[in-house]
């Protein structure tokens, strides 16, 4: 099989791309998409470590499945928040939402 560290490199790359997106994209929905990328990087790591370290136990898969739940909940609430803000402020650009600055 492909050595474990290769999966880790891919996951690290995915995570950093996601991080770059979160830090630089101005649209809130795009930021959310980048967060999904980061969550997936985590999932690759979970599954890869499960496969190479403890394939006889099921824990790794269970935790990856729970990450799915968290990702879904995050998307559901996050997008709803963005929509609510959009209705109030007519913008989805993250830096325009500065109500708390005052």
């Amino acid at each position: 099989m492909v050595p474990l560290w290769m999966y880790l490199v891919v996951a690290a790359g995915l995570f950093c791309i996601g991080l770059f997106g979160v830090l630089t994209r101005r649209n809130a929905i795009a930021i959310l998409m980048s967060i999904e990328l980061m969550l997936n990087a985590v999932n690759i790591n979970l599954v890869a470590f499960w496969r190479y370290q403890t394939p006889d136990k099921i824990g790794g898969q269970v935790f990856a499945a729970f990450v799915f739940v968290v990702a879904a909940a995050e998307a559901v609430v996050g997008l709803a928040l963005i929509l609510a803000i959009y209705r109030r402020r007519r913008t989805v650009i993250a830096e325009d939402v500065d109500m708390l600055k005052w």
Partner: peptide
């Protein structure tokens, strides 16, 4: 908006690359 990214994107790029 014509701008997709923040103006400080090089900083973010450096940060992400460093982390990687």
């Amino acid at each position: 908006v014509l701008k997709v990214h923040h103006t400080q994107w090089p900083v973010a790029l450096a940060l992400a690359a460093l982390l990687f």
